[in-house]
Deep mutational scan, measured.
Amino acid sequence: MDVFMKGLSKAKEGVVAAAEKTKQGVAEAAGKTKEGVLYVGSKTKEGVVHGVATVAEKTKEQVTNVGGAVVTGVTAVAQKTVEGAGSIAAATGFVKKDQLGKNEEGAPQEGILEDMPVDPDNEAYEMPSEEGYQDYEPEA
């Protein structure tokens, strides 16, 4: 019985440690998101679009440190934060509304985080759909 109880105690310690790591990862992701939003706020009209992409990228980098179902929630929060940063930029006159959601080359930025393969159960990952990809044929 002692062996059984000791095993359960060790398992509990492992769960607590994993929860603490997840909590730490979420806190880091939130900190990076805040950094990115402050970065966007300090940019001029020309830099705002690039700044919004930076927020998304920093958040995406930190999301990889967070495991399990938390990833889905962090990704949703990050996307809403990026959308909010863009709205703030438009409201303050840093950028025109028609410039939001495009990178410096004018290509749409939507789907940055949505296409990231995420499995809350950590069982399997699927690649994003290939609808947006084109076949590449090298020139002879």
Score class of each variant (00 low, 15 high):
Asp2Pro: 01
Asp2Lys: 01
Asp2Thr: 03
Asp2Cys: 03
Val3Met: 11
Val3Trp: 02
Val3Asp: 01
Val3Cys: 02
Val3Gln: 02
Phe4Leu: 10
Phe4Ala: 00
Met5Arg: 12
Lys6Asp: 03
Lys6Glu: 01
Lys6Ser: 03
Lys6Leu: 03
Lys6His: 02
Gly7Phe: 13
Gly7Asn: 08
Gly7Val: 13
Gly7His: 04
Gly7Ala: 02
Gly7Glu: 11
Leu8Ala: 01
Leu8His: 00
Leu8Tyr: 01
Ser9His: 10
Ser9Phe: 08
Lys10Tyr: 10
Ala11Gln: 00
Lys12Ile: 03
Lys12Leu: 13
Lys12Val: 14
Lys12Tyr: 05
Glu13Asn: 14
Glu13His: 03
Gly14Tyr: 15
Val15Tyr: 03
Val15Thr: 01
Val15Gly: 00
Val16Gln: 03
Val16Ala: 05
Val16Ile: 11
Val16Pro: 00
Ala17Ser: 05
Ala17Gly: 06
Ala19Pro: 00
Glu20Arg: 06
Lys21Glu: 00
Lys21His: 03
Lys21Ser: 06
Lys21Cys: 03
Thr22Ser: 12
Lys23Glu: 00
Lys23Thr: 05
Lys23Arg: 09
Lys23Trp: 14
Gln24Gly: 03
Gly25Phe: 12
Gly25Glu: 12
Gly25Cys: 04
Val26Glu: 00
Val26His: 00
Val26Ser: 01
Ala27Thr: 03
Ala27Val: 05
Ala27His: 06
Glu28Trp: 04
Glu28Cys: 14
Glu28Val: 15
Glu28Gly: 10
Ala29Asp: 00
Ala30Gly: 01
Ala30Phe: 10
Ala30Lys: 02
Gly31Pro: 00
Gly31Asn: 07
Gly31Cys: 01
Gly31Val: 03
Gly31Trp: 07
Lys32Ile: 13
Thr33Asn: 00
Thr33Cys: 03
Lys34Leu: 08
Lys34Gly: 01
Gly36Asp: 02
Gly36Arg: 14
Gly36Thr: 11
Val37Trp: 12
Val37Arg: 00
Val37Gln: 00
Leu38Ala: 06
Val40Pro: 00
Val40Leu: 14
Val40Arg: 01
Gly41Lys: 02
Gly41Asp: 00
Ser42Val: 11
Ser42Lys: 11
Lys43Tyr: 10
Lys43His: 05
Lys43Val: 11
Thr44His: 02
Thr44Val: 12
Lys45Gly: 04
Lys45Cys: 13
Lys45Glu: 00
Glu46Ala: 13
Glu46Gly: 05
Gly47Cys: 03
Gly47Met: 08
Val48Glu: 00
Val48Ile: 07
Val48Leu: 10
Val49Glu: 02
Val49Tyr: 04
His50Ala: 14
His50Phe: 12
His50Pro: 04
Gly51Tyr: 13
Val52Lys: 01
Ala53Thr: 04
Ala53Glu: 08
Ala53Tyr: 05
Thr54Ile: 10
Val55Gly: 01
Ala56Asn: 02
Ala56Tyr: 07
Glu57Trp: 09
Lys58Arg: 14
Thr59Ser: 03
Thr59Arg: 02
Thr59Gly: 08
Lys60Asp: 00
Lys60Pro: 04
Lys60His: 10
Lys60Arg: 04
Glu61Thr: 07
Gln62Val: 03
Gln62Ala: 08
Gln62Asn: 08
Gln62Pro: 01
Val63Pro: 01
Asn65Gly: 13
Val66Lys: 02
Gly67Ser: 06
Gly67Val: 09
Gly68Val: 10
Ala69Cys: 15
Ala69Met: 09
Ala69Gln: 11
Ala69Gly: 07
Ala69Ser: 09
Val70Asn: 01
Val70Phe: 06
Val71Lys: 04
Thr72Asp: 15
Thr72Gln: 13
Val74Gly: 02
Val74Ser: 02
Thr75Ile: 05
Thr75Phe: 08
Ala76His: 09
Ala76Tyr: 11
Ala76Val: 05
Ala76Ile: 07
Val77Arg: 08
Val77Asp: 02
Ala78Glu: 01
Ala78Gln: 04
Gln79Tyr: 04
Gln79Asp: 05
Lys80Asn: 05
Lys80Phe: 14
Lys80Thr: 09
Lys80Asp: 05
Thr81Met: 07
Thr81Phe: 13
Val82Trp: 11
Val82Met: 11
Val82Arg: 07
Glu83Pro: 09
Gly84Lys: 11
Gly84Ser: 08
Gly86Pro: 07
Gly86His: 11
Gly86Leu: 09
Ser87Thr: 13
Ser87Phe: 13
Ile88Ser: 02
Ala89Ile: 08
Ala90Val: 02
Ala90Pro: 09
Ala91Leu: 09
Thr92Phe: 08
Thr92Cys: 12
Thr92Ile: 03
Gly93Leu: 13
Gly93Ser: 06
Gly93Ala: 06
Phe94Leu: 08
Phe94Met: 06
Val95Asp: 08
Val95Ile: 10
Val95Leu: 14
Lys96Asn: 12
Lys96Met: 11
Lys97Glu: 03
Asp98Ile: 02
Asp98Thr: 13
Gln99Phe: 04
Leu100Arg: 04
Leu100Val: 12
Gly101Gln: 05
Lys102Gln: 03
Asn103Gln: 08
Asn103Asp: 10
Asn103Arg: 09
Asn103Thr: 15
Asn103His: 08
Glu104Leu: 07
Glu105Ile: 01
Glu105Ser: 03
Glu105Asn: 06
Gly106Ala: 07
Ala107Met: 06
Ala107Leu: 07
Pro108Thr: 10
Pro108Trp: 08
Pro108Ala: 06
Pro108Arg: 11
Pro108His: 13
Pro108Ser: 11
Gln109Phe: 07
Gln109Gly: 03
Glu110Tyr: 06
Glu110Leu: 10
Glu110Val: 05
Glu110Lys: 03
Glu110Ala: 13
Gly111Gln: 15
Ile112Gly: 11
Ile112Ser: 11
Leu113His: 09
Asp115Asn: 06
Met116Cys: 08
Pro117Glu: 02
Val118His: 11
Val118Thr: 02
Val118Ala: 03
Asp119Phe: 03
Asp119Ser: 03
Pro120Gly: 06
Pro120Ala: 13
Asp121Lys: 10
Asp121His: 13
Asn122Trp: 05
Asn122Tyr: 02
Glu123Pro: 15
Glu123Cys: 06
Ala124Val: 14
Ala124Trp: 09
Ala124Pro: 03
Tyr125Cys: 07
Tyr125Val: 12
Tyr125Met: 03
Met127Cys: 05
Met127Trp: 06
Met127Asp: 06
Pro128Cys: 05
Glu131Leu: 07
Glu131Asn: 11
Tyr133Gly: 07
Tyr133Met: 11
Gln134Leu: 06
Gln134Glu: 05
Asp135Lys: 04
Asp135Met: 08
Tyr136Asp: 01
Tyr136Phe: 09
Glu137Ser: 09
Glu137Asp: 07
Glu139Val: 07
Glu139Phe: 15
Glu139Pro: 03
Glu139Met: 07
Ala140Gly: 07
Ala140Met: 04
